[in-house]
Design a protein around this nucleic acid. Sequence first.
DNA 1: TCTGCCATGTAAGCCGTTACATGATTTT
DNA 2: AAAATCATGTAACGGCTTACATGGCAGA
Lengths: 218, 218
Amino acid sequence: MSTRAEVLDLAVLGRLATAPMHGYELRKHLGATLGPVRALSYGSLYPSLRRLTDAGLIAEVRTATTPPHALSGRRARIVYELTDAGRVHLAEVLAHAEPAAWDDDAFTVRFTLFAATDARTRLRILEGRHARMVERLDLLRGSAARTRERMDSYTAELARYGLEQAEREVAWLEDLIDTERGTRGPLDLRPATDGGPPRTSTAGATGVPDIPNPKEQL
Amino acid sequence: MSTRAEVLDLAVLGRLATAPMHGYELRKHLGATLGPVRALSYGSLYPSLRRLTDAGLIAEVRTATTPPHALSGRRARIVYELTDAGRVHLAEVLAHAEPAAWDDDAFTVRFTLFAATDARTRLRILEGRHARMVERLDLLRGSAARTRERMDSYTAELARYGLEQAEREVAWLEDLIDTERGTRGPLDLRPATDGGPPRTSTAGATGVPDIPNPKEQL
DNA sequence: TCTGCCATGTAAGCCGTTACATGATTTT
DNA sequence: AAAATCATGTAACGGCTTACATGGCAGA
């Protein structure tokens, strides 16, 4: 679960769990949810489908309406669906929260699959991500303070903007965590050993609108 | 100026223009300005120094205080400085603003070198970047609107956050542009042909603090 | 008819991180 | 005395983007 390819595979598997799809469609959907900006290329998508097929986690759908390679509508589209093994594997992966789950790219993918993740795991991932971002924020603040005098205005402004962005992401995560806890963050007793921040609590009413009771497993 | 390596080379060249430095130091500085998060690895830095040396744009400094490979302090550190050709080349690159200059990574590097860039080029790069981000923002809004119904709360929340971030970057750029123009944006007459936005103007007093009169060329 | 979108793949090139190799100096 | 930091490189592996190959269908 640490390599890029594995993260992509998880995204594909998770998307196919919702509905069977063919490659082209999948690309559009993933591009939409993971950021329309970096629409992943076929050069990585199709190999991913191949890997998952070889692993027996997904399989081509063969229905009466789509005879294999026949001259039915358009070109022979290959629709993929999860196999039973795929369902089991997905459930297993979604059930535990390793540190790899809060890496930059993995976190986004895991977050888009929160609807199929149980509440405890969701919380643990959010907290892990939060800790990671706070750590990063401290680094930023430190280096900004250290080099402030030596920087020209533009470099300083860039640093300021970067800091602002990081602070906002931390605040966003805190909102999400509060919402998940349901407690709306009265006061949490984290030991200050690990660099836990004093909780600035910029959090407003910006939390997740309406969280459904998600199906516990998949 | 489009490949990643060229962008990195520019960053290195620009940094060395300010002060001669050795590789290890360079890595720290670049890591600090371009984001302490992704401290670039030696695996890309040293090859870059090699390329620039081969191209004759930088050269090792040989001073009396640092005899080559002798047992003077520490290990033989190789300090690099710009050659005359390097200075000329840097000035040329910084003088013009191609579309490649507002790509994600290139923009950051160009921005950190704004102190050595003339005002007109600065403005053109900021405007190019702004147009790019507005375009991206429209894409985001479009796909968000299209898929809103089909999304679960978490995916929707992620999309909302992404949109918010993009809006903030656009606002940031507008602030910078206004500051550069000196006019503080009374009303600019852009034709609506190109998808120019109605200028929401969230811009407050968040602009660049004090922009110095930068040395015009390097 | 031609452009553009749908649709699936493959191959190559680029490049960046990671790990390894080496060794001195400073700090704990 | 060990650990961390300074310091410079090389090699290999991973993997993503880009371009190419192919072809059907729909609308202008």
